[in-house]
């Protein structure tokens, strides 16, 4: 909920804070995609192995 905190602290126009929230959501998506699809740790790789192959992510 850090993003909420950021947006309430801003006094600039509303559209900017909405854009900032949208960018934050994209960042969360990128982080999630990295952990599941690309993180090099063995544990992450082994757990998501079949999914990584099925989404045609580079694997092995």
């Amino acid at each position: 909920m850090q993003q909420q905190a950021i947006s309430t602290e801003q006094s600039s126009p509303l559209t900017l804070s909405v854009a900032l929230q949208v960018v934050s959501a994209i960042a969360v998506g990128a982080a999630l995609l990295f952990v599941v699809g690309f993180a090099p740790m063995d544990v992450a790789h082994n757990a998501a192995h079949d999914a990584r192959h099925s989404f045609a992510f580079p694997c092995h």
Binding site: A25, I26, V28, G29, A30, L32, L33, V35, V36, G37, A47, A48, H49, D50, A51, R52, S54, F55
Partner: peptide, 17 residues
């Protein structure tokens, strides 16, 4: 189970984008 879980996680990531 882990594979379907990972599929859902990737689905959520793509849906976020």
């Amino acid at each position: 189970g882990y594979t379907i879980g990972a599929d859902i996680a990737i689905g959520i990531a793509y849906a976020l984008f």
